[in-house]
Design a protein around this nucleic acid. Structure first.
Lengths: 123, 123
DNA sequence: TTCAATACGGATAAATTTATCCGTATTGGT
DNA sequence: ACCAATACGGATAAATTTATCCGTATTGAA
């Protein structure tokens, strides 16, 4: 178990939203869940680059932050369905715009990302 | 100097935008620059929680990604001014909405963030 | 002559996040 | 009997990001 050592910033809206959506797969998860892809196994199939363990962790965080919630069916084999809370729904317009902006500018973005490999330092 | 080992995802818009704005202070920097706070020293004063070194690194990344650009005045003491590129300007509506959403939901967000301290595991 | 203001970046440590590996448990199909 | 499908999470390694510390260089002001 990991214990945070540095304080979390919560000065302004940008700090706060960063805390809940800046995870490698969080916006993807929100997106797919909003599209009705609700079961963990399905989400994983849609995000094959992500390790299942990581998806679980990020789903848990989204759940803790109350952007999503889940229904656990009492059956075997297990069945779980995630859905967006009202708060989660309210952020979807922005998530969709993020994806749209990325798509609209994909040429540019792919170019600058490739350029990074040539740069002397990255950090 | 650091060399990346894992591949960068660039499958979809959400991957791409993550690459350019998911840094601890990037959306803040974009916001303040859009507000006309253009000099590094001023940006630092507006984001006192951030280490200056980190702001420099993230400004450099924003510059490499062509969301911002800078004018270097040839004088002493040095003077530099950052400004948004067209691409940077095009993302501001979304950045502003992110901040707005965070502000609008600040009570909720502060509550869930505080709750994290009580949770058994974080990762 | 010493210090403040200005911007930048090397070197390295620390913190955090993500990845990998593997084990739990149950039902039904082959 | 054995395996696939299903969801979950412990333990730990690896990768990445962020933080800390300090040094460079120049002008003008006290």
């Amino acid at each position: 178990m990991y214990e945070r050592k540095l304080p979390i910033q919560e000065e302004c809206g940008l700090d706060l939203i960063r805390e809940v959506i800046f995870g490698k797969w969080k916006i993807h998860l929100l997106y797919y869940i909003s599209q009705g892809i609700s079961r963990p196994g399905q989400l994983q199939k849609n995000i094959p680059e992500a390790a299942r363990r990581v998806l679980n962790i990020q789903l848990k965080q989204l759940e803790d932050d109350e952007l999503v919630a889940k229904t656990v069916y009492d059956q075997q084999p297990p069945k779980v369905e995630y859905y967006l809370t009202d708060l989660g729904k309210s952020i979807m317009p922005i998530v969709n715009q993020l994806g749209q902006w990325g798509d609209d500018n994909s040429e540019h973005l792919q170019r600058v990302i490739k350029k990074r490999l040539l740069l002397p330092e990255i950090n």
